[in-house]
């Protein structure tokens, strides 16, 4: 079966000022896969994620060359807000707005022009169900989102991203601040989302990448060292550095 490519980078170089963070990156991400990215700190994982929805450009010192294609279209030719609607991101720490649970999710659809109240209510319910949070919060949608626990907040962030109907979801070490049970719940939600979405997961937790992802890439010092099926990468890595990293000899 030939897999459809959703995201493709060609000779991507990313810099902050003079500091090169990603070097000549070429990789392809397939539709509906969970793509894991592992690597030590400062290996350019997060920069790669944020390059995909152009959030890096919020930093004035950032520059990049090379090409990124999303669904065969060059990123340069897509409006930022349309691109970010289709490629959502979940941040490392749960980032909720200081409004109610309901309004956190309703915000996205509203800025994209959905005004009807019942339409938004339906989106809120569906998104929360997909993020496996509905049962826990359905009776208190009007209470402040900041009162939820960390794990619930992170699932709320997932629901909020789902509410704008993206094609791709980026996860930036989204379980780094969570306990194992919350992490398990979020990983369950990710498995269910696989049917509909392409997911890219950056994580410091190699075990999580091994559990969740189908293909996995190892980044080191801004370079792509190895990319393979997750099972292969974790059992017989071809590069010694990958082997050292996943067995915990450095990083």
């Amino acid at each position: 079966m030939v897999k459809e490519t959703v995201i493709k980078t060609v000779n991507l170089n990313c810099r902050y000022g003079a500091l090169q963070v990603l070097k000549d990156l070429n990789l392809e991400i397939h539709r509906n896969e969970i793509f894991g990215i592992i690597g030590p700190a400062n290996s350019g994982k997060t920069t790669f994620l944020r390059a995909l929805n152009r959030l890096n450009f919020l930093n004035a010192s950032y520059s990049q060359d090379g090409e990124i294609f999303f669904a065969d279209k060059n990123l340069k030719n897509i409006c930022d807000n349309i691109l970010r609607k289709r490629i959502g991101i979940i941040f490392a720490l749960p980032q909720v707005l200081p409004v109610s649970i309901y309004n956190n999710i309703a915000y996205g659809p509203k800025v994209h022009g959905i005004a009807k109240k019942d339409a938004i209510e339906q989106i809120v319910e569906e998104s929360l169900k997909k993020a496996s949070l509905w049962d826990e919060v359905k009776d208190r949608l009007d209470s402040p989102a900041m009162k939820l626990s960390g794990g619930q907040q992170q699932r709320l962030c997932i629901a909020r991203t789902l509410a704008v109907e993206p094609d791709v979801i980026l996860y930036d070490e989204h379980c780094s601040g969570l306990d194992p049970i919350s992490t398990a719940k979020i990983e369950d939600a990710m498995q269910q989302l696989k049917e509909t979405y392409t997911q890219i997961l950056v994580t410091n937790n190699t075990k999580q990448a091994a559990r969740v992802s189908e293909r996995c890439a190892f980044f080191l010092m801004g370079e792509l060292i190895e990319l393979d099926e997750t099972a292969a990468l974790f059992t017989e890595p071809k590069d010694k550095r990958t082997d050292d990293y996943i067995t915990g000899r450095f990083g």
């Binding site: 929805n53 959030l55 919020l58 930022d80 807000n81 349309i82 691109l83 970010r84 609607k85 289709r86 959502g88 991101i89 941040f91 980032q95 909720v96 707005l97 915000y107 996205g108 800025v111 994209h112 909020r160 991203t161 704008v164």
Partner: peptide, 10 residues
């Protein structure tokens, strides 16, 4: 601001 922009708001 990041939340809002990342959801595709202008």
């Amino acid at each position: 601001r990041e939340i809002s922009l990342s959801l595709g708001a202008t």
